[in-house]
Amino acid sequence: MTNSIGIPAQAHGVIALTASACTSCMICVRECPAWCIELESHDEEVTEPGARRPRTVSVLDAFTIDFGLCMYCGICVDLCPFDALAWQPDFDYAAGSPSGLVQGINELESWGKSRE
């Protein structure tokens, strides 16, 4: 999927997700002017050893960006308090249908991985 030879590393090619950093706070979803991000999550109680009471954590179930709609403004990247979203220079992800431009957690997490 990565075909970014000769492309500046800071190029705004695609938006990558680090799912483990996402707290499902919904800031990106609500601030997106194109309404192109969708997020689903549920709460789970986690009891850590030695803790007095269980902690509630948000678990990410689904995260999609519709790159057909996305205007690549980067507001989501800028506003994410946990740096879960980041630009990657990849550009080679054309699709044969508009639904093929809707990327889920697996695709969004794959961007930039092969260069690390």
């Binding site: 919904m26 979803v29 609500r30 997106c32 002017p33 309404w35 991000i37 969708e38 997020l39």
Partner: peptide, 17 residues
């Protein structure tokens, strides 16, 4: 016509714009 993806389940919130 398009549902706002940012709508919280437990309270009412307005999208920007």
């Amino acid at each position: 016509l398009k549902p706002w993806p940012g709508q919280p389940s437990h309270r009412k919130q307005q999208p920007i714009g």
